[in-house]
C-alpha cells in the first residue's frame, strides 16, 4: 500500500540522512468513500413533501343542512369525481392507465340544484332525463400558445369563468407584484416580504363578500381515487376559490350519473 522510495542514490555525503519520499496509495480509500457516498445518496430523501391544508365542517348534521341550503343558491357548482369504468355488462372494473398504472378519474359538474329547479324526479319517482343538468368535463392543464399566453381548458375554464370577478382582481394584484408595487423583488428577503404583502391582499380579495363568486361543492364517488380529490382541491387553489366544501355524494347525484351515462351510449 504505502511505498517508500529512495531518491538519489548513494552519491550524497555519508552521514547525511537520506531523503525518503513516502507515497500512500489512496485508491482503496477512494473506493470505500465512493461506496459510502452511494449508500447515503440512496438512503436520503432530498425532496421534502408538500402539504395541502383543508378545513372541513363538523360532522353535526344540522349544521350540514344549513350549509347545503346556503350553497344551493344560483352560484353553486357541484363537481363530481368518478372513476372511469370499463363498459360492458359487468360495470365495476376500473380503467387503469396503461402508462402509469393510475386509476382514471372522470370529472362531472352541474350548476345549482340537481336537475335544475324542476328536480330530477317526476311523480312516482320517475327519473326525468330531460332535467339532467349534469355535464362532463376534463381535468386539463393550460394550453400555452407560441406567445406564452395561457388558456384554461376543461373544468378549469368553467371555474375561471364563474370566478371571473375575483380572478381579475387577483391578476391585477399579481401584475402589481411583478411591477414592484409591493416592494422590490431584488433580494430573497425583499421578495418574501413582497410575497407576504401580496398574499394578504389576495386573500382579502378572495374573501370579499361584495364580489360575486361561486360556491363549489366537491363530491366523489367511493371508487374514485384520492388523486382526483387532490387535483380538484388544486384547482380551487389555482383559481382562487375561497368557498368550497367536500360533501358526501347523494342518491340524486348517483342517479344523475347513471342517467348521463345511459344517454351517452
Amino acid at each position: 500500500m504505502a511505498e517508500v522510495q529512495q531518491s538519489g542514490g548513494d552519491s550524497g555525503k555519508k552521514g547525511h540522512q537520506k531523503k525518503m519520499q513516502i507515497r500512500v496509495d489512496f485508491t482503496p480509500m477512494v473506493d470505500m468513500n465512493m461506496l459510502l457516498i452511494t449508500f447515503f445518496m440512496l438512503c436520503t430523501t432530498m425532496i421534502k413533501s408538500q402539504t395541502l391544508t383543508i378545513a372541513l365542517p363538523t360532522n353535526e348534521k344540522v349544521q350540514n343542512e344549513e350549509n347545503m341550503s346556503q350553497a344551493s343558491a344560483d352560484d353553486a357548482i357541484t363537481i363530481i369525481i368518478d372513476a372511469k369504468k370499463k363498459p360492458g355488462p359487468t360495470p365495476g372494473t376500473l380503467v387503469i392507465d396503461s402508462v402509469n398504472g393510475n386509476v382514471v378519474n372522470e370529472i362531472y359538474y352541474y350548476d345549482g340544484k340537481p336537475g335544475g329547479d324542476a328536480g330530477m324526479f317526476g311523480p312516482g319517482g320517475t327519473v326525468l332525463s330531460a332535467n339532467n343538468n349534469l355535464k362532463k368535463s376534463d381535468l386539463l392543464s393550460d394550453e400555452v400558445n407560441s406567445v406564452g399566453d395561457h388558456k384554461a381548458r376543461g373544468i378549469r375554464q368553467i371555474i375561471q369563468e364563474r370566478n371571473k370577478a375575483v380572478l381579475e382582481k387577483v391578476n391585477e394584484l399579481k401584475k402589481q407584484l411583478n411591477d414592484g408595487k409591493f416592494g422590490s423583488l431584488e433580494t430573497k428577503d425583499d421578495r418574501e416580504k413582497a410575497m407576504a404583502k401580496y398574499n394578504e391582499e389576495a386573500s382579502k380579495v378572495r374573501k370579499d363578500e361584495n364580489i360575486k363568486k361561486p360556491v363549489i361543492i366537491i363530491k366523489s364517488t367511493p371508487e374514485a381515487s384520492y388523486r382526483g380529490l387532490v387535483d380538484i382541491l388544486d384547482e380551487m387553489q389555482i383559481n382562487s376559490i375561497s368557498k368550497y366544501q367536500i360533501d358526501n355524494i347523494t342518491d340524486v347525484d348517483l342517479v344523475m350519473l347513471d342517467d348521463y351515462r345511459k344517454h351517452q351510449q
Binding site: I47, S49, Q50, I54, N59, V230
Partner: peptide, 14 residues
C-alpha cells in the same frame, strides 16, 4: 371530523 379535528393537512408531492 367526528372528533372535531376538522382541519388537517394532506401530504402531497410537488
Amino acid at each position: 371530523q367526528t372528533i372535531k379535528q376538522n382541519k388537517f393537512t394532506l401530504l402531497t408531492a410537488l
